[in-house]
Simulated scan of single mutants.
Amino acid sequence: MREVPYKSTAARRGHRLVLPIAAVAVVAFAVGWVSAPSVPQQSPPLGVRVSGGVPVGFAGTARGGGDAAAAYVVSLSVAVTQSDAARRSVIGNVMADGVSGAELVGEAPTPATGVTIVQTVVARVWVPNDDLDEVLPDGAEVDVRLLVCALSGAAIGGGAVDPAGGLAGGWYLQELRLRWGGGRWGIVAVQRPVPVPPPDLRGTQRDGGPRDMRPLADVLSPRSWVPGTV
């Protein structure tokens, strides 16, 4: 596969002008901050509250189903490090009626420090429905795709830090199907997470060269959204 060219970060105005990367980043941030439109606040939707360690009260719309899926995935990842009773409670609160989730959450290995971090962060949500805000009838199901970053490893703080330890993680595409009924969303099915290319945090070029970005077409499209925003 041939190498994909990338745009130069050098500015041209009559003659070549090269600025330090840090200065370019500061200027770009300042210009973007001044010119960018207001960003919706990431506050929970009206009526959402926490019950039994799981957010509930999402709207009976496709958007509400997407937000519920994001919240459920985060709750399930946290439940991995909890007791058997706590895990069963979380699973029971996120699964649809009549659907078994016995194998949904495993048990995290305990590191030498005795404390484990297992956390999922949802960056984007996508649902294929044309009208995301249409009120759905009982029994309606939605397919949800999530772009998530999953982290796991030993917690740090309060003692010596193992230089060989730390957090392991990666970016994944997570697919779920949820059903609306009885005033709540419940998980019907969960697909195995698919690894996807991570974002380039340096902003210069992709680490490792060109990649297949097709799995990200939906979750990075204009119709996707950050969970909890409108």
Rank of each mutant, 00 (worst) to 15 (best):
P137K: 12
P163L: 08
R12P: 01
F58Y: 15
E141C: 08
W180K: 11
A96H: 11
G139R: 10
L46K: 14
G66K: 14
G186T: 06
T204A: 13
R16D: 13
D200E: 12
G114A: 11
Q41L: 13
R206A: 15
S89W: 03
T110C: 12
V190W: 02
F29E: 01
A23P: 00
A155K: 07
G106L: 04
S152E: 14
E103I: 01
I156K: 06
S77T: 01
R177W: 02
G139F: 10
V56T: 15
S35A: 15
S83R: 11
A71G: 05
R63Y: 09
L178S: 01
A160E: 15
P109G: 06
L151H: 15
Y6C: 01
V39A: 12
M213I: 05
A112K: 14
L176N: 13
G64L: 10
G208L: 07
P111G: 02
G52H: 08
V125G: 03
V48C: 08
E134M: 07
R214V: 13
A69R: 02
V226H: 08
D133S: 13
H15Q: 13
G182Y: 12
I117W: 01
Q41G: 03
P45L: 06
S35E: 12
G203K: 01
V194H: 06
V188M: 15
Q205V: 06
L176S: 15
R177F: 05
A86C: 00
V219F: 02
G52P: 11
S51D: 14
G101S: 06
V122A: 01
A71Y: 04
Y172R: 03
W225C: 09
M95E: 03
L146F: 07
A217L: 08
G66I: 11
K7G: 13
E134W: 04
V144N: 11
P45Y: 02
R145K: 14
R192M: 04
G53D: 07
D130Y: 14
A25L: 13
G57M: 12
G166H: 05
R49E: 12
S221Y: 07
A68M: 09
G139I: 05
Q82F: 02
A154G: 14
D130C: 03
G153V: 09
A150I: 10
W185N: 04
V39K: 12
Y6E: 12
V48L: 07
L176A: 06
A71F: 01
P128L: 05
T61M: 05
G14E: 00
W33M: 05
V34S: 06
G32V: 00
R211T: 11
P137F: 08
D84Y: 03
G47F: 05
T229R: 08
A86F: 00
L151E: 12
S77I: 03
A25P: 00
P215Q: 10
A79C: 05
V127W: 05
V196S: 07
G92Q: 05
Y172N: 07
R202I: 03
T113I: 12
V144S: 08
A112P: 06
P198Y: 09
T113R: 13
L46P: 06
G14V: 10
V190F: 03
V125S: 11
A62W: 03
G203W: 00
G64S: 05
A70W: 08
R223E: 13
A36G: 14
G165K: 00
P222T: 00
R214N: 02
G98Y: 08
A140D: 07
I21R: 15
D218C: 09
G32F: 09
A102D: 08
P197R: 13
S89G: 02
A164V: 08
R177K: 15
L136G: 03
L132A: 08
R202H: 02
